[in-house]
Nucleic acid binder design. Structure first.
Lengths: 201, 201
DNA sequence: GTCTATACAGCGATAGAC
DNA sequence: GTCTATCGCTGTATAGAC
């Protein structure tokens, strides 16, 4: 089977191959670090085809971010259940997404956002409009405290994802998800619904 | 030992000017994003001088990281005092360093480590050898639990620094340090000395 | 549709004139 | 010591032949 890879001429899935290679490249090296040439090489196609299909590197990145991952579908899994275990469920779902194939998009977005202002704005808007507002709306949180609570949750989740999937600091990078749920869940729970009176005065 | 008659080179502060410009460039754009040319332009010198003084971009980065910041001097401020307020003191000191001029080096190191494997290893080794071991040694922590506890602390602190100083997610980016100490301190305290029996089984 | 060829800019690094 | 000039390479993007 290895003799002739029947991919060369007129393969109809060239576009998809580029997307797969781009997703991996962006996840590994971020937006600036991933080059059109390397993506094309990874997909086994000519660099010019990337521009032919996607027009520019920006548009390719946006297409890469459009994974079949709709936060709204995950929200019920978080809110349904005992209110005092929302933190644990949020951490569990969060870890599940990042450990899944869809997590590559998250790694790519986070990695890119740290060193590229354009993607940083993308991540900010995504977090604020798609995540924070929904969670705050769903839960009965004092609106005046909601933004800070959401920021604190974001800080813990972003930190966990960064240490686990980007910096790969041990032993957290290899710790079983349920261990982290048990350890970090209460923290998130506290940020969401706990007493922050000392903090917010 | 000092060469009394050794006349200083043409401009004695050229080297320092390069270091200052490099520190800022690395902090703003990370290791890969900061170019020798832009650093030289920022310092108002010729790009060739950067290589003349530092030999390579790697060595320049290492020289940039050698800020007058010795974690050992900060450790007593954290450990001295009520044991149940170690988390708050750690968060307070941590925020103080990142908000100070020395924090630029932290931003540079974190930003570089996320997108560059070479600097990622640098940060890992720094965190593990300089921070985690000292804190774990100083506190009376079960050695078998110490690495995970340190990882969890790192995840929260890295996340707070990332959200605050790199992603600049509001309102956390503009929140007063003491508010964050009150909000995040208990989390760190729990990771350090709290009951993780559910997690570590 | 696909690929060759190339334009144009920027990178780190080096050699050598002054 | 400082700088000009340049090398070799890589980046995105485009034009045009098959």
């Amino acid at each position: 089977m290895a003799r002739r890879t029947g991919r060369r001429p007129g393969s109809p899935d060239t576009r998809e191959a580029i997307l797969v290679a781009a997703r991996q490249a962006f996840a590994e090296r971020g937006f600036d670090g991933a080059s059109i040439r390397s993506i094309a090489a990874g997909a086994g196609v000519d660099p010019a085809l990337v521009h032919h299909y996607f027009g520019s590197k920006d548009q390719l990145f946006l297409a890469t971010m459009n994974v079949p991952f709709d936060p709204r579908e995950l929200l019920p899994q978080i809110t349904d259940g005992p209110p005092d275990a929302i933190g644990a469920r949020l951490v569990r779902i969060f870890l599940g997404v990042w450990d899944s194939p869809a997590g590559a998009a998250g790694v790519a977005l986070l990695r890119s956002a740290v060193s590229n202002e354009w993607t940083a704005r993308l991540l900010r808007e995504f977090v604020v409009t798609q995540i924070m507002r929904r969670v705050a709306d769903q839960l009965a949180i004092d609106p005046s405290q909601a933004p800070l609570r959401a920021s604190l949750v974001a800080s813990q989740l972003v930190g966990m994802a960064t240490v686990r999937h980007i910096l790969k600091l041990e032993p957290l990078a290899s710790t079983a998800p349920e261990v982290l749920v048990a350890a970090v869940g209460p923290t998130v729970q506290h940020y969401l619904t706990g007493d922050l009176s000392e903090a917010v005065g």
